[in-house]
Design a protein around this nucleic acid. Structure first.
Lengths: 101, 101
DNA sequence: AGAATAGTTCGAAAAAAATCGAACTGCAAT
DNA sequence: ATTGCAGTTCGATTTTTTTCGAACTATTCT
């Protein structure tokens, strides 16, 4: 995990966010994080039917799109949804993600 | 324009809609339609820097994703956003599209 | 009927995204 | 210090998406 500095949401385009949300795996990641008791989980703790490399890729897409934050904790990488910031920049977006299935 | 019967929004997945909205051209189409006085425009009446074939493709992606409706009018093809239905199925989605640039 | 307009469809090519295994880094516990 | 765990990076492959020109359909206008 090279860099934990997330992109500034003001610079993130709607199309980029939509692109990030157009993948079932990535929606699963977000929904699982949103449903998590303390709002964060280690990357590996979200069940996905893809390889480690692909999983890492999906987390990166979500990170680049400004949707999740990362925090190192020992060897693990805790991730969380950037709820408040997203609500300001894209109001209602997360509600749409949560509302489904 | 073979078929004017749009997909049932209940069958449309969020990921599909997000995918359709991940393209700048297609966001332009939606925003232009949303801003149009009577809410509908002929396909060709939306300025886009792509060929006729590509334009047709983008309209089709939007149509398949349940975002727009089509109506023949002579040789033209009038399109409109499926506002009310979308608001029911994906509340707040169009607001996000409109809110931007 | 013939020409013009509006849009679709068909290939095919180019670009972008997803996917994986293998090699790698960093941390922690033995 | 070595083994194991968590995650990233690299390189390559496959799949999906975008894109276009050319040929086509349907409609309107002269």
């Amino acid at each position: 995990m090279k860099d934990y500095t997330p992109p500034d949401l003001k610079q993130v385009e709607l199309a980029t966010v939509m692109q990030a949300l157009s993948e079932p795996c990535r929606l699963t990641i977000l929904r699982t994080l949103l449903a998590a008791p303390d709002g964060e989980l280690a990357c590996g703790d979200i069940p996905l039917d893809v390889s480690k490399a692909t999983r890492s890729h999906h987390f990166d897409v979500l990170f680049q799109a400004g949707l999740i934050a990362k925090r190192p904790e020992g060897a693990k990488c805790m991730t969380s949804v950037r709820r408040a910031e997203l609500q300001r920049r894209f109001p209602g977006l997360l509600a749409l993600v949560e509302r489904e299935s």
